[in-house]
Design a protein around this nucleic acid. Structure first.
Lengths: 213, 213, 213, 213
DNA sequence: CATGAATGAGCGTTCATTCAT
DNA sequence: AATGAATGAACGCTCATTCAT
């Protein structure tokens, strides 16, 4: 008895405090991983950045590797939510809005994504589990969209896989310096304009078409 | 005849043997750096890959870091040679040939380039010294080309910097899996066809133009 | 009473434990440095002598070199305190007491001083920073004392610098085997008698003077 | 047959060349050992100083340690020759000449002696084999001399061992900076004058004696 | 729950010595 | 006889992790 309150669902207080601390550790660690790489970042670096004792980290994560995995996992959900919008992609949905959303999604957690790129670049398991696994549905949806457009004579005949890759490449290239950490993220307005330009290029190419004035 | 004194060029025998050994070390190291990252690759790993004693490495390089720098430096010359072709880029020179050459250049040392990307992603000095320094002239030339085409009404009005970035992004995206090490390099024929497709897309876009049939 | 807040001086508990451990490391290291020399003593040797892990050393000193410097620095303060007595050196203060004090001071940290001699013998910076720097004032005071005695006709005419050096040489020679580690240190009584004999010789020489009987 | 000339005593030509090379190595090594210590001097350092290949050293000495021992052994003979003069030490032989000779002997090979002091200070075997072994006869002779003088009423009553140590201490102290390498060696005239001063002090002390004017 | 202290495993590097040429 | 090349052994030091408090 002794007035034990709410024995079942208790994600309250202590639980939240733990999650807040975990997020603080992940943010600090991600910043360091992005700057110096996972391997060159020491647990001492992380602990100092969060201003806690080095061994306190082990109360929130089972080790350095788990901190990395927690950071990498963060992106999975975010990309999933994209699928909803992608599946609705029809003519009435402008490309620009989609690209804008993709860029916004990636930039929202740009530090986490920078870490993801760094690690996936040298680690096959991470590439598979956190990149291919998450982006495969996106690429597939894009390919299906292209196939449909090609079949209906809207798009020129082209390899859907290559087309999908080009689309993604173009908008990622546009934000690469931000992702890499050498440029500031664009304002929503800038980003929107950028998305428009990219879609213009990818849709109609560099060459001026006749009749476009 | 027989008494050829050869007084000048004397990089013979021993010199060549040293350079051969240095290349063997660099190749082995690059493979390991690409797989596990520079930091996670130990000098013991490298020595075992070349099948020499760990301390023998130090007869050819002053340290682990110097091996990395030798690998990174390799690319500088290759990119320089591109500029010659870029500067000749006129109407009569097809885009496709240029893109083909760019891809060939990058893929020729694809393992070295994979290491370069990995390190430049987390190290600002390497990014500056080995990427920006080398690619800036290439990007500038591309921008100038685009500006010229835009001014003469051949290209649509667009930001030359963005256009240049799109061009590079498209062909790099096409070979990214090879660079990353998860796909085999294309045959020259495949590569040539790929270059054609990329140029087609980047030139005229995804949409089928009227009058193109 | 009991509510003593002690707001200022707080080198308590942990601070003292750290200093105790540092001293234990310094003592063990000094013994090894004295026996085998600094260069031939490994950090593993020191750690084993203190019975701690090798890496634990680095929690108390930043490296092997810092352990040496801590040992060398120890003597500075001790020599400084001598100056007080030296400056009071007048007729009423017997030479013997001064020499006794000098010997006691040196022998109190004889192992540290043995290390100091060893390193100063081959390292100019250490010679300057830890020997000349500390002993210069002592030598100067002795020279001033001799000059004064010479001027007043008590001492024979002689080079004060040479005289000072002879004084120091004689008492150091007397304790050299102890400093070197091949003899046990003398008891206070033995040391006192030794000081008397040395002063007798340095004062009146080996020759029996007329009228001394 | 084959006209083999002089099969027995053949310390000619080749033998002498070997000895000349050995001496060159010993001199270079002694200079380095004196500056940086035996342990901190590498075989590469020595080889470079003699301008030969590192492995060539092993044609003249069996290893680094043997070079050191050859250097240390050099002094043995020199000290032995002193004994002849010491044994002739009588009244008619002035102290000053003896001290002058001692100083000259030590300074003649001052670099070798600096190495000897350095190594004997931390190595008991070297102390025994190269210092005590060589200097014991000298000390003994001095003690016998003092005992005789004391018995005949010329010297004051004193411990012969202490007296002998004082004598040696005084003249070594006078040349210590030269031995250490921070002062240039004195000219023969300077050395002679120095010897006179030292003998004056050690004989009659610092105090002005009555009747000495 | 937080942490200072401790540490084993392993890192990059040096060096005296050997050996084929 | 001379040496460039090679290397095992060992060095000083770092760090992710554990544990007593």
């Amino acid at each position: 008895m002794t007035s034990q309150p709410a024995p079942l669902q208790e994600p309250t207080r202590r639980e939240r405090r733990i999650q807040r601390q975990q997020k603080a550790i992940m943010d600090a660690a991600a910043g360091l991983f992005a700057q110096k790489g996972y391997r060159s970042t020491t647990t001492r670096d992380i602990a100092e950045a969060v201003d806690i004792g080095e061994s306190t980290l082990y109360g929130y994560f089972s080790g350095k590797k788990e901190i990395l995995q927690a950071i990498l996992s963060q992106q999975a959900g975010a990309v999933d939510s994209l699928l909803v919008h992608l599946n609705e992609l029809e003519d009435r949905q402008s490309f620009a809005d989609l690209v804008d959303l993709l860029m916004e999604t990636i930039l929202a957690r740009r530090v986490y994504n920078r870490v993801l790129v760094a690690e996936a670049w040298t680690d096959d398991e991470i590439l598979q589990a956190y990149v291919i696994e998450n982006w495969q549905p996106v690429m597939q949806t894009l390919q299906d969209f292209i196939s449909m457009k090609t079949a209906t004579g809207v798009f020129r005949p082209l390899d859907p896989a290559l087309g999908a890759r080009m689309i993604v490449a173009c908008f990622i290239a546009a934000i690469l310096p931000v992702l890499r950490g050498v440029e500031s993220p664009p304002s929503p307005e800038q980003r929107h304009a950028l998305a428009g330009s990219i879609v213009e290029i990818i849709s109609n190419g560099l060459y001026l078409q006749k009749g476009q004035a």
